[in-house]
């Protein structure tokens, strides 16, 4: 099962694992597949491994798109 929600890296251990926070619940994730990950990044974790970094700029862009569509609808 894929975990849709990104968590935030709050610490990185010397052994290559990181503590990832989901609204107060934390998991230990292996960061080996995401060597560029740093504290403060939002990441997608799957089967105990961080596999992707969340691009916040893109997330914001999508939210803006929703807003535009809303306007388009209301002008119908």
């Amino acid at each position: 099962m894929c975990l849709a929600v990104p968590g935030k890296i709050i610490s990185i251990e010397p052994n290559g694992t990181g503590k990832v926070d989901y609204m107060g619940t934390t998991v230990v994730a292996n960061l080996s597949l995401l060597p560029e990950a740093k504290v403060g990044d939002w990441v997608i974790v799957h089967a105990g491994f961080a596999i992707s970094r969340l691009d916040r700029q893109e997330a914001r862009r999508t939210l803006r798109l929703f807003k535009q569509l809303e306007k388009l609808n209301s002008s119908d």
């Binding site: 975990l3 989901y22 609204m23 107060g24």
Partner: peptide, 12 residues
């Protein structure tokens, strides 16, 4: 609660 919302997402 906030913590529940985070945890259920993680555990699916």
């Amino acid at each position: 609660s906030r913590a529940i919302r985070g945890a259920v997402e993680i555990l699916g």
